[in-house]
């Protein structure tokens, strides 16, 4: 009788224990290089990714609860800020650079236009604490999350019982960001020789123009080589932006900025680190005839990149094949309404 009671009791106990976090299977393209972000240190789980998504769309991460990460990083613009040349923040503040699109971040070795941030996990610290963006104090934010019953439960489900600390916050956000990957564009289908996938003659011509004139910096398949270059943009006297020199203190890095990926480029205007060009044809015109000569100018653009009218048109059609509709319409990444 006693044994039976013990058995029942032990069964009850097991049933009341919460299931641990379930592994999240991340689909990665075989034709991409190995990711830079070491996910073995922060294994993706269903609960962790869901928590990261909630945090990404929660305006309470900002000081006055008005601005979430998703406020500036809009899915339909490949998580760039559509139509906004410079980043926006609380108190009507404006930053001094454009909002980069967010995708394929696990293949990036450093972040920001100047490469100042060296790890995916510490990237969110910048927008969260920057007075021109979300303007919040990290300690206050951690206290607020700890005071929220729902967040405590979600963090416990994702990382086990315990206080919420900044590492758990950053790792949850990193887990969600690790799922923001774009590799289902028409270009990818053509490269993978999927049935029925082929470029139109104009796209094919554009691809040839791209390979000849753009691919050295915008290297496939990520469409960036991750380097910092001075692409000959005329100096903007209002922003006084020295580019990567701000990080390295090296005059050799004056006016150098990260080579951005061209994936989803037609969905994420305006262009350049200061969002000065609203139309991709302005970008073509810049490379063709707008190069300003400065000592750190990149040798590949020093003499301009001649582009005829038809080449620009074909390039436009090719860039259009880099739009990933699966990505920008993915329900798994879309905004969730946070009912506070």
């Amino acid at each position: 009788m006693g044994c039976l009671f013990l058995l029942i009791w032990s069964c009850r106990k097991t049933a009341s224990v919460r299931p641990g976090p379930q592994p999240y299977t991340l689909e990665l393209p075989a034709d991409f290089p190995a990711p830079v972000y070491d996910m073995s240190q922060n294994p993706l789980t269903v609960q962790g990714v869901a928590l990261g998504r909630r945090l990404f769309y929660d305006p309470r991460l900002s000081r006055d609860s008005t601005i979430s990460c998703g406020f500036c990083h809009q899915q339909f613009a490949a998580f760039a800020h559509f139509d906004h040349p410079l980043s926006h923040g609380i108190d009507n503040n404006t930053g001094f650079r454009s909002v980069p699109g967010l995708f394929n971040l696990i293949w990036q070795k450093d972040f920001m236009w100047d490469g100042g941030v060296n790890h995916l996990e510490v990237q969110p610290l910048t927008p969260i604490t920057d007075p021109n963006e979300m303007g919040e104090d990290l300690g206050r934010l951690i206290s607020r999350l700890n005071a929220d019953q729902q967040y405590r439960a979600m963090f416990n489900d994702a990382f086990g019982e315990g206080e919420i600390n900044s590492q758990r916050l950053f790792r949850a956000l990193a887990q969600f960001m690790a799922t923001m990957n774009s590799f289902h564009s028409k270009y990818d289908s053509v490269m993978r020789k999927l049935p029925g996938a082929q470029f139109t003659p104009e796209e094919a011509n554009g691809y040839r123009v791209f390979q000849e004139k753009c691919a050295a910096c915008h290297k496939e398949p990520l469409f960036t080589d991750g380097s910092y270059r001075n692409n000959g943009l005329p100096y903007n006297p209002y922003l006084h932006d020295a580019g990567r020199m701000r990080i390295t203190n090296s005059t050799g890095d004056y006016l150098k900025f990260k080579v951005p990926s061209l994936r989803n480029i037609l969905k994420s205007p305006p262009y350049m680190h200061d969002g000065r060009f609203y139309d991709i044809f302005n970008v073509f015109d810049h490379y063709a005839e707008g190069i300003e000569q400065t000592p750190t100018i990149d040798p590949l653009v020093r003499n301009g990149i001649p582009l005829s009218v038809s080449e620009k048109r074909e390039l436009y059609f090719f860039l259009n094949t880099l739009t990933d509709h699966t990505f920008i319409n993915s329900k798994a990444l879309s905004e969730i309404l946070i009912d506070n």
Partner: peptide, 17 residues
């Protein structure tokens, strides 16, 4: 990446930018 304890950026000893 993200660290804990004495190295937690909440201590105000980590440059974000």
């Amino acid at each position: 990446g993200a660290q804990t304890g004495a190295l937690d950026p909440v201590n105000g000893m980590f440059w974000s930018w």
